[in-house]
Write a protein that binds this DNA or RNA. Structure first.
Length: 259
DNA sequence: CCAGACGTTGTT
DNA sequence: GTCTGG
DNA sequence: CCAGACGTTGTT
DNA sequence: GTCTGG
């Protein structure tokens, strides 16, 4: 799950308000953000395998906006080829196994981050037809996802690669319906942090037990679940796919409302 | 010992 | 050429 | 994004 | 770097 997101300039800027509480700090942060995003195209739809740059706030510098590529490469990776292979395997990180996986455990200890997007995408299947859905917050705020990051290839020759990974957890009931695999198939969603959980996730001294409560699936009412026109190309798109209302999804709509 | 993996999701 | 999988 | 598949028969 | 599988 969570292999595509959207990340627009407005949402990125909106987020500045949450990262600070006095007006001077907010102004400074907004300035940093505008600088950082000046030449950064807005992404209405982007596939993780394209490794786009996403807006993150790190545990080390919680008030400094950064752009990290989607796809974490652990520091022990030897060569470029292996790095690009790893980056494709680390778009997501299971919250249940963060502490054991060689690719994630060092990042889990000291390189956690917040990843700011305004939506993520998932397919709903009906027979041979699939309907792309976009999930966003009902309160119109950007989504703050739990993330891990790592820096790779800090050599004299090249610029190091900054990569990140989106932490996932069990799907909430609405996501399970949208992502209708039912039965033994387990459905997943990204870990979405409220403002309290954001502080916990970035706390430098947090241990696994402290972080566990962050992994609770977001309440159903936190998100809006909309069918959208699936992009024709897998290339990153400036435009957010438009919302559609196919009659085939009337029952699904009803089921979600009744939750 | 040493080469090879190191990951996730969904099987509609 | 087009679809799928990672 | 981009590499890889794209299929059938018949069973040491 | 560390673990697993053959």
């Amino acid at each position: 799950m969570c292999y595509s997101v959207s990340s627009l300039t407005k949402a990125r800027l909106d987020y500045a308000r949450h990262r600070a509480d006095d007006s001077a700090l907010i102004a400074a942060l907004e300035k940093e953000l505008e600088e950082l995003l000046r030449n950064e195209p807005p992404l209405g739809w982007v596939n993780g395998f394209a490794h786009p740059r996403l807006l993150v706030f790190t545990q080390k510098e919680p008030l400094m906006p950064r752009l990290f590529r989607w796809g974490l490469v652990p520091p022990w990776v030897r060569d470029r080829e292996q790095a690009s292979q790893l980056a494709k395997q680390t778009l997501n990180a299971r919250s249940e196994s963060l502490w054991e996986k060689p690719s994630f455990r060092e990042s889990a200890k000291g390189q956690r981050c917040l990843i700011i997007v305004d939506g993520f995408f998932e397919y709903h299947h009906q027979g041979k037809t699939k309907f792309l859905h976009r999930m966003s917050r009902t309160d119109e705020e950007p989504l703050c996802l739990a993330g891990l990051y790592a820096v790779w290839g800090a050599t004299p020759t090249g610029i190091p690669y900054h990569g990140c990974s989106i932490v996932t957890t069990q799907a909430n009931p609405a996501m399970a319906l949208v992502h209708n695999q039912s039965k033994s198939g387990e459905s997943r969603m990204p870990v979405i942090l409220d403002s309290n959980q954001q502080r916990v996730w970035l706390a430098p001294d947090a241990d696994p037990a402290d972080l566990q409560p962050c992994f609770r699936p977001a309440p159903v009412e936190t998100l809006r679940y909309e069918a959208v026109q699936a992009p024709h190309s897998s290339a990153p798109s400036h435009d957010t796919p438009p919302v559609i209302q196919p009659p085939e999804l009337w029952i699904l709509r009803q089921e979600i409302t009744l939750l």
